[in-house]
């Protein structure tokens, strides 16, 4: 049986409603809130600041450290035990790689820029929401960036190519491919790419093209969030 209509009634290439806000955590050097559907992310940037232990310092450049964390009550099932899991460590690492290409931290040798990403509520697509929030927060912190980074999950549910899978689609009872991607909007370069599931090469290419197009739209929302902070 073919997937005829999306679980929540959206068009195939339509994202869930997005809200973004910059400067939501006064104590941070930069911060942002990014909500897509029922997935909610907060990101806070601290730094450039001193990095300890000292052996971690790099005299050639500042380093970026990302920390992805779900609040214990944010998942749809049981309580998530606090503290890092293998999953959260991996996502932290790929988030770092997704954001680093737009940053230039050579001005800050031996220093660190910490990005903390927290989720009060999740419904799939959290790593992408986290990257979107983190990119706004880095810009809000006033760090030099050559562009934003925007991210979205694309994929295939049964025989249909879709954009922005929610949890119900990710766990749909059919063949599902879930492909989170992050994109530098001005160049279309891809800084994060993962795939869970099964898809052929032709569909994969199309799915990624959908993703790049969607990321350009998300980028507008991110830029607006930053402008909105200074609009009175």
């Amino acid at each position: 049986m073919a997937y005829k209509k999306r679980v929540d009634g959206r068009d195939w290439h339509e994202t869930r409603p997005i809200t973004a806000k910059a400067g939501v955590i006064p104590r941070a050097d930069g911060s942002a809130y990014f909500k897509i559907g029922d997935t909610e992310a907060y990101a806070a940037v601290y730094g450039p600041r001193n990095l300890y232990p000292r052996f971690m310092q790099d005299p050639a450049t500042g380093i970026l450290r990302c920390h992805y964390n779900m609040m214990p009550f944010s998942g749809s099932g049981e309580r998530v035990r606090p503290g890092g899991s293998r999953r959260s460590k991996e996502i932290s690492a790929v988030t770092e790689k997704a954001l680093l290409p737009v940053l230039d931290l050579t001005e800050f040798p031996n220093a660190v820029v910490d990005v903390f990403i927290e989720f009060p509520q999740t419904d799939a697509g959290s790593r992408c929401a986290g990257i979107c929030a983190a990119a706004i927060a880095l810009a809000d912190a006033g760090l030099s960036m050559k562009d934003m980074v925007s991210a979205i999950a694309v994929g295939k549910v049964d025989d249909k190519l879709v954009v922005d899978l929610n949890y119900a689609e990710e766990s749909y009872d059919a063949e599902v491919a879930d492909i989170p991607i992050a994109v530098i909007p001005s160049t279309g370069e891809i800084t994060l790419l993962q795939l869970d599931g099964i898809i052929d090469k032709h569909d994969l290419k199309k799915a990624i093209e959908n993703g790049i197009e969607t990321c350009r739209k998300i980028n507008e929302v991110q830029k607006n969030a930053l402008k909105e902070k200074y609009r009175k």
């Binding site: 941070a28 907060y42 806070a44 903390f116």
Partner: peptide, 9 residues
């Protein structure tokens, strides 16, 4: 309590 490093430097 999780004193999130997001909330305080």
């Amino acid at each position: 309590v999780e004193l999130l490093p997001l909330s305080n430097p």
